[in-house]
C-alpha cells in the first residue's frame, strides 16, 4: 500500500475524529520543523497529574502509569507549531495558578476531589486547552502499552477474520 493510502486508511480507522497533528503524532511523525519551546520537568509532572484526572486508575492503570505525559510533550513538540505550543502550556500554567488561587496549593498538591474540581473548571473556562489536553491524553493512553493491553483488548496477530459474530459479555474494544 502506498503511504498516502496508508495515511488515509489510518484517518478512516480513527474515524476522522482526531486532529491532524495528533494523528500524525500517534503515527510517530514529525510535522513541526520549526522551533519549539522547552518543557521543564515540573511542567511534565503537572501534565502527568492532569492526564491522570482525565484518565484515572480504575480497575486498570491510568494515564500517569502509562506515561501519557511523555506522549503529550513529544507530540506538542513534534507536530504542533510553536504558537500552539505556547497557547497550550499557557493553559497548563493557568490551571496551576487557578489551583493556587482557589485552594492555596499547586495542582500537584491537591487531593483527588480538588483536582477533579479544577479540571472541571478548566473544561468550562478554557475549552480549547481542555479539549487538546483530553485528546492528547486519550490518544497517548490508549496507544500506550498499558492502555492498549490492560484497558483494551490487544491482539497483534489475529491470524483470522470474522466480520460478523456475537459480542461476548464484557468484551473490550480492540486496541488495534
Amino acid at each position: 500500500m502506498k503511504r498516502r493510502e496508508a495515511l488515509q486508511q489510518a484517518a478512516l480507522m480513527m474515524g476522522g475524529i482526531l486532529s491532524a497533528p495528533t494523528l500524525a503524532g500517534a503515527m510517530g511523525r514529525i510535522t513541526n520543523t520549526g522551533p519549539s519551546i522547552a518543557v521543564s520537568a515540573d511542567q511534565e509532572s503537572l501534565l502527568a497529574e492532569v492526564a491522570d484526572v482525565i484518565i484515572p486508575t480504575t480497575s486498570t492503570p491510568g494515564a500517569k502509569a502509562a506515561g501519557a505525559e511523555k506522549f503529550i510533550v513529544r507530540v506538542m513538540r513534534d507536530c504542533y507549531p510553536k504558537a500552539d505550543q505556547e497557547k497550550f502550556y499557557a493553559g497548563l500554567a493557568k490551571l496551576d495558578a487557578d489551583s493556587k488561587t482557589k485552594f492555596g496549593k499547586e495542582f500537584v498538591a491537591l487531593d483527588p476531589a480538588q483536582k477533579n474540581e479544577m479540571v472541571k473548571q478548566t473544561m468550562t473556562e478554557d475549552k480549547p486547552f481542555f479539549l487538546r489536553m483530553k485528546e492528547l491524553t486519550t490518544t497517548g493512553y490508549f496507544t500506550s502499552e498499558i492502555g492498549a493491553t490492560k484497558a483494551l483488548e490487544y491482539l497483534p496477530v489475529p491470524g483470522q477474520f470474522n466480520g460478523c459474530m456475537p459480542l461476548k459479555p464484557g468484551q473490550k474494544t480492540w486496541a488495534l
Binding site: 491482539l155 489475529p158 491470524g159 483470522q160 477474520f161 470474522n162 466480520g163 460478523c164 459474530m165 456475537p166 459480542l167 461476548k168 468484551q171 480492540w174 488495534l176
Partner: peptide, 9 residues
C-alpha cells in the same frame, strides 16, 4: 450493537 468482529481486515 450485539455484534463484533475479530481480526483487522
Amino acid at each position: 450493537l450485539d455484534k463484533y468482529y475479530i481480526g483487522r481486515r
